[in-house]
């Protein structure tokens, strides 16, 4: 399953741990939420970059105390139609200012890339190779956005106002020249 991070197909450096088994001490690990919540201290003390695989039916506010220590949060989409993790992502990025890698896993198609990007995801485990290859194109299918989210893209509303003011300024320039 190809992984895209920050717009490029990359190797996944995180080793995904199961519910049980030893904790490797040299490679970055991705730990299931239940396992992490049982032994936070152990994982937080580990010397490796730490990721948590968070289910979409648990409040992300539970993760707040650990965000500074987490290099990766993977949010899960059990089905294309199940959009709970979009809210989780926005809360992590916009409310808790989480700065690490935010990964979308599960039923991920190219048609979600832009929604995911806008919600704050920056890495994607994609089901199909063709979809991974289409990432750059899919991420640029739209140039107009109507909602302000944490991704910083300017909205149509703001852009209209900006142009309106810019036009007013530029329109006033010739007038001044005539006046002088």
């Amino acid at each position: 399953m190809p992984l895209i991070k920050d717009g490029r197909i990359v190797e996944d450096r995180f080793v995904r741990l199961d519910e049980e088994g030893p904790l490797p001490d040299v490679v970055p690990v991705l730990v299931p939420a239940e396992r992490f919540l049982g032994n936070q201290a152990e994982y937080l003390a580990a010397k490796v970059p730490l990721g948590v695989l968070w289910p979409n039916n648990k409040r992300v506010s539970e993760l707040e105390p650990y965000l500074g220590r987490l290099a990766l949060i993977a949010l899960h989409f059990p089905a294309f139609k199940d959009g709970r993790a979009y809210s989780q992502a926005r809360i992590l990025r916009e409310r808790y200012k989480y700065k690490g890698e935010l990964r979308a896993t599960g039923d991920i198609l190219q048609d979600q890339f832009l929604f995911l990007l806008r919600a704050g995801f920056n890495s994607f485990e994609v089901k199909k190779d063709a979809d991974a290859a289409a990432f750059a194109e899919a991420a640029h299918r739209y140039s107009i956005f109507y909602q302000p989210t944490g991704d910083g893209r300017t909205t149509a509303l703001r852009e209209r106002l900006r142009r309106f003011h810019a036009n007013k300024t530029s329109a006033s320039v010739p007038d001044k020249e005539h006046a002088s």
Binding site: D82, G83, Y86, F115, Y146
Partner: peptide, 10 residues
Amino acid sequence: WSTLHPEFTF
């Protein structure tokens, strides 16, 4: 606001 809302389309 609701047109292709990135959080509320699913």
